[in-house]
Design a protein around this nucleic acid. Sequence first.
DNA 1: AACTTTATCAACACCGTGTCGAGTCAGTCA
DNA 2: TGACTGACTCGACACGGTGTTGATAAAGTT
Lengths: 224, 224
Amino acid sequence: MVEDVPKTAAKPTPTAGGRGRRATRASGDDRERAILETAERLLEERPLSEISVDDLAKGAGISRPTFYFYFPSKDAVVLTIIDRLVAAAADSREEALKMLAEGDPRAGLRQALEDLYGAFRARRAVTLAAAELRMRNPEARALWAEVMEGWVADVTAVIEAERARGVAPPGEPARDMAIALVQMNERVQYATFAEESPSLEPNRVLNVIVEIWLRTIYGGVEPS
Amino acid sequence: MVEDVPKTAAKPTPTAGGRGRRATRASGDDRERAILETAERLLEERPLSEISVDDLAKGAGISRPTFYFYFPSKDAVVLTIIDRLVAAAADSREEALKMLAEGDPRAGLRQALEDLYGAFRARRAVTLAAAELRMRNPEARALWAEVMEGWVADVTAVIEAERARGVAPPGEPARDMAIALVQMNERVQYATFAEESPSLEPNRVLNVIVEIWLRTIYGGVEPS
DNA sequence: AACTTTATCAACACCGTGTCGAGTCAGTCA
DNA sequence: TGACTGACTCGACACGGTGTTGATAAAGTT
């Protein structure tokens, strides 16, 4: 059902912060994984706000106090899960960035947006939980901010390069454009995942955001 | 037995739903206002999730049970406040739409975005609370969806008109473009109000989103 | 004056969080 | 082997928030 990521090695601790277990290396590893899997499974069914610590404990076959042996709070569990999503997305970004540097920037841009969209769509439930958590948890906010900052920096560089090459017209500061574009993606994708109304159809999202990115970056406004 | 109130003509009830008071016309009006004012005041200080029913009751000079005489829940209070914000924003939209229909669409568009931005910036705290509430309250979600739908419909009409006039190039379906643009505005403005990082500076927001809107609507992508 | 409606709140039932302390159990190692 | 230790478990509790109940008072209405 939930075949987990293959990177169980090469990483002593997901984050340096006080997330995760207190200190151990014994059989409780299974329990920790069980909690994380339960969280992911329940998030497919209902929003984070409707999942209690008891639900997670029950799902992992332990009592509520025992849950606290493994994680300091419900939020910490979700934060750990988000860490992994973010790491996966970062890989996608690096991949796409490489492609962007060597080939045609326009095709590369489409590929990059596609990979990014794919990374989050694959973990739709977690993405929605992240957005929810961000509203009330400073740590989640900081983590997300870091992610956004990374993309903005990359996109800014791309826009500036294309302007320098003379293929993109000047305009508002590249970084400002990048912020708006990246935030647009986030919002549009969230709406689609959450099936808001109005929202874009899943199979239309990429066409639309790619067109807006291209027009924004490459298309100057002809004076009427 | 329905004593009609003359002061707020043309509006019997903010919403048809069971929001607000149960039924009265006496001095308790002051209390109701006091609760709403307390809520707005506290929202300037801290997020909705950190405000309790007791805080609202204390702020209005009543006990917690008495609060429930006036509102069925904390959410209902905020929903009432959001109703008003939304109504004000709708007025702005109508205003801007009129301007858009008679004058130059490009200048009109800028004016419309400016008015809209202003309407929400004037009620920054409430706007942020609305976003928070939307995450966990279906009624708030429905209300916001209605608002978004209204804007999307208007923008769709504008894009289609401009394409029909031949001044805007064809491209992805007008409605899809409209959805993405409206959602971009929402996200960018939210980030600015919340002082996220990264986010646009308050005095730069309009320049940036107007440029993106114009390039998206009027600027086709020249083939490289 | 009897009656109704509006308004108020102490006390309660309930739920979710997080902590404490008293355990069990599986391995050391003396 | 038996005392010791550290990993692990959970019943019972304290706390803080929500929403309800029922008793009561105060202000109209007839």
